[in-house]
Amino acid sequence: MLFALLARLGQMVLVMFGISVVAFLIFFATPGADPSARIAGRNASQETLQQVRHDFGLDRPLPVQYALMMKRLFVTRDLTSFVNRGQKVIPTVMNAIPITLSLVCGAAVLWVLGGLVVGVVAGATRGSYVDRGLMMLGLAGISMPVFWLGEVANLVTQSRWHDTWAFSWVPALGYVPLSVDPWGWFKALVIPWTVLATLYVGLYGRVLRASLIEMMQEDFIRTARAKGIGETRVLLHHGLRTSLVAFVTMFGLDFGALVGGGALLTEVVFGLQGVGKLTYDALQTLDLPMILATVIYASFFVVMANFVVDILHAILDPRARDAR
């Protein structure tokens, strides 16, 4: 078991190495995308270009360039942005991480709980009006684009009805660090959480309902009913428990992707300077060091999430445990 875990960790490192190489090559070695030209500015002379090339080590062979870049990213951590000269990349990303994590974790709690409730209630009352109503709401949630829903929420809580009793508590857009003011943190994030979770509640509710309904047709559910245990126990202890495997897998992947920058639209709409926003801005200005840092950061979370999913999978499903 320990060996399997170590092997898995080794695989993760390999995957991340691969991603960093690919990202590096895309941005630094693509023909026509000369990074030195971007750094030197629009109308730089040949001499300036040469100088920049030499300063940044861009006249060295590619593997050396890669090694240099990685050294400046991870060891000396002094890689600076090409666009905002002097802005160090690593601390910027580090500052953005808590914002993104706060946003995504809070939303994840909401959507997991919401998805579980919607899925189980709809699955248990399959075909009823409750089921149909929930599924329609879920579909509505999935269909509403997050930026639109976010803007609507802002419109309602920030301007239209901001002065009424209902929304006067809503703070201005932006982030309040948890360590500074926990209550302020909560107030600042509760609306972004809800907006981000809306899509996923609908999605997870529908997926869980489908999986639960499928599980409830299985032979072992019939065995459980024949044992004379109540339907609630059959539903939760046998049906839901076996459905959770798919649910958790999905959750891990979505969570990883969101923390890795996938919450971009929500961050932009709510003025949160998270990793998504950072990536977005870096891409706008083709700020290569920043892009590289955020891509590697994102891949770290996606790979981590995969790893955690595998572990959870093994905990939830004994068959997966023995398959390794």
């Binding site: 032979d219 072992f220 019939r222 065995t223 459980a224 046998h238 076996t242 495997v245 499903d317």
Partner: peptide
């Protein structure tokens, strides 16, 4: 093969 709940 299918009569028992696989996760318990």
């Amino acid at each position: 093969m299918t009569a028992l709940t696989p996760v318990h």
